[in-house]
Nucleic acid binder design. Structure first.
Length: 594
RNA sequence: CGGGGCGUAGCGCAGUCUGGUAGCGCACUACACUGGGGGUGUAGUGGUCGUGGGUUCAAAUCCCGCCGUCCCGACCA
């Protein structure tokens, strides 16, 4: 009886999702400022609208999809044993002063004051708040490990918001934090999180890779990023074709794909090169390969306190190689963030100008990239305007003080794991996991008693997923020329029912409405396109494809003559006629299980 | 933060060079027709031309400032 009443209440539902009374805000032309497919489609399908740069309103359709992405993440996080909490968006400056990030973070941190002039920020992340909570609530190793997470709005005053919600100033993130009494426990949870993330992205049917990553300003040691492969991605990721090595290009290492050849050493010569100052122009002028040249870059060093210093440092790379800024600025003695020396400063300290620099008689610290180590008979600047040396050799003519990995990995390089070929692809960073260690527990004094009754700092991990960005990535990877192809788990609706030529036959309305009610009973979220004759069949069909609902049933007099409706699968485009009496079975076997 | 572009109806754009009644397409409203692929026709609604100042008899148009916005780069959990 109860079940029967439940069905009855469904049938009498007043909140039927009828398009005639729903904000289906599709547009034909995409706004001029949309650049990439997902951004254009999100605007065209009426998922979002821009309020200001980097700030978006989620329309009904987009909001439904967003909640579904959240729920998949929530579901998998719960399975991992993490506890969901909710922390304030507005955070007091005191905590950020404790961790020293109040000064470390630049203008990216949204700062504000309350009526009493107290400083606050809009949280870009929540390490400080969670550490504060845990240090107050936890006191024994016996209570650990503990994992907390939240799905929360974050703010970052990005210098350059772009690609719609892909890089916006306000966005939704799932952030999780784990606390441990020792490193072993941290590593255990770290690998559980790695697995959880893989499960989440697999459920979303994404083509993704996890790569070793730089931990950046958040700190810590080990870190992995999860990237959705897409040409529109802002990052470059490097992986070996056998899958044994994967890293963000910022820290990727590899063997050169074209090693330096050994040959008979020749005597060096000073040659006139006129106004040829770039590697490109030198190779053309002398008719040589860029691999036989050496380029010299001059950057600022740092003093003992890590401040910028006017002691310059020379970086030496093979001419065909490019400098990797992230790797370089981690080197001791080099100022971070990396700063190239000005022309005037170089002239003052070396007597040479950019474009004629070389290691011979260069009286500053010289760091050579591995790519130049074995160079033989190479060309480099002579530290005299308009002159270069040819046939230079290290022991005979010039020297360096230190060897380091300074270069950007290039396609076709060989993996350091096993020398299999390296591939470089673009990716969208949708997740990032870190082993923070004691960075925050130390600065914020978060300790517990260990089994010996001794106070010890907690080990921490943190784990983020950009929910809003993840949704955009799904569209970036799942669309065709007609519109979005939602993975069924996050589609705003599973089924769309179109009434076509309803004015010709009252059956169209009654059949489609009963079909709608049946779908609700089966727990299929459906949208009923009941718009009247002013909306042409073409519009209904085209829009249903643009918004990407996975399953579509068209109810029209044409097929009702045969006592049937027409089903179309958005993904495959396959059409089937379904007889009215088979419809429940069909819904169960086709739509419900997808 | 450097370089570049753009701001004219809800959206996409023309008009700016060479100053002289603010236009086109889509959308929207009404009516008629049409009826399975973003229909057709007729008639309409909707604009301080981003903003402030200057030049001029007259400024969307020329000059100066500011703001917004997008792209490239730098930067970035």
């Amino acid at each position: 009886m109860a079940a029967f009443l439940l069905v009855e209440s469904f049938l009498q539902a007043k909140y039927v999702m009828k398009i005639s009374n729903y904000l289906l805000a599709t547009v034909k032309e995409s706004p001029a400022d949309a650049e990439i497919a997902s951004h254009k489609l999100m605007l065209r399908a009426g998922l979002i609208r821009k309020l200001a740069s980097g700030l978006y309103t989620w329309l009904p359709l987009g909001n439904r999809a967003l909640k579904k992405v959240e729920n998949i993440v929530r579901n998998e996080m719960d399975k991992s044993g993490a506890m969901e909490i909710c922390m304030p968006v507005v955070q007091p400056a005191e905590l950020w002063l404790e961790s020293d990030r109040w000064s470390q973070m630049g203008p990216e941190l949204f700062r504000l004051q309350d009526r009493n002039d107290r400083d606050f920020c809009l949280g870009p992340t929540h390490e400080e708040v969670i550490t504060d909570l845990v240090r107050k609530e936890y006191s024994s190793y016996r209570q650990l490990p503990a994992i907390f997470y939240q799905i929360q709005t974050k703010f970052r005053d990005e210098r350059r918001p772009r690609f719609g919600i892909m890089r916006s100033r306000e966005f939704i993130m799932k952030d999780a934090y784990s606390f441990h009494s020792d490193e072993e426990s941290l590593q255990e949870t770290y690998s559980i999180m790695h697995e959880t993330y893989s499960n989440i992205f697999s459920r979303l049917k994404l083509n993704f890779r996890s790569v070793a990553a730089d931990s950046g300003s958040i700190g810590g040691n080990t870190s992995h990023e999860f990237h959705v492969l897409a040409d529109a991605g802002e990052d470059e990721i490097v992986f070996s074709t056998d899958g044994k090595y994967a890293a963000n290009i910022e820290l990727a290492e590899a063997h050169l794909h074209t090693p330096n050849k050994k040959e008979e050493k020749r005597d060096s010569k000073l040659v006139d090169t006129g106004d040829a100052t770039s590697i490109d122009s030198i190779t053309k002028l002398l008719g040589i390969d860029a691999k036989k040249t050496l380029k010299t870059l001059i950057v600022h060093g740092e003093d003992k306190e890590g401040n910028i210093s006017n002691n310059l440092v020379a970086l030496l790379l093979r001419g065909d190689q490019e400098l990797n800024v992230t790797k370089t600025e981690k080197l001791k003695g080099i100022y971070s963030p990396l700063k190239f020396a000005s022309n005037q400063l170089i002239l003052k300290q070396t007597g040479s100008t950019i474009g004629s620099l070389g290691p011979k008689d260069l009286d500053i610290h010289k760091i050579a990239d591995f790519s130049v180590e074995g160079l033989c008979n190479f060309v480099c600047g002579a530290n005299m305007a308009g002159k270069h040396f040819t046939d230079m050799n290290w022991s005979e003519n010039c020297s360096y003080d230190q060897v380091a990995d300074l270069r950007m990995v290039q396609g076709n390089d060989k993996s350091i794991a096993d020398r299999s070929p390296i591939e470089i692809k673009r990716g969208i960073e949708v997740g990032h996991i870190f082993q923070l260690g004691a960075k925050y527990s130390e600065s914020m004094d978060a300790s517990i008693l260990d089994s010996n009754g001794k106070a010890t700092l907690m080990q921490m991990g943190c784990y983020g997923i950009g929910i809003t960005r993840l949704l955009a990535s799904c569209i970036e990877q799942n669309h065709d020329e007609k519109g979005i192809l939602w993975p069924s788990e996050i589609a705003p609706f599973r089924l769309i029912i179109l009434q076509i030529d309803a004015h010709k036959s009252a059956d169209v309305i009654s059949i489609s409405e009963s079909l709608y009610n049946k779908s609700l009973i089966f727990d299929i979220e459906s949208l009923l396109d009941d718009r009247d004759r002013k909306t042409s069949p073409g519009v209904k069909l085209t829009e249903s494809e643009l918004i990407g609902i996975p399953h579509r049933i068209v109810v029209s007099p044409r097929t009702l003559k045969e006592n049937a409706v027409e089903y179309t699968n958005r993904q495959t485009g396959a059409k089937t006629k379904v007889h009215i009496e088979d419809i429940e079975k069909f819904l169960k076997e086709t739509v419900c299980i997808d």
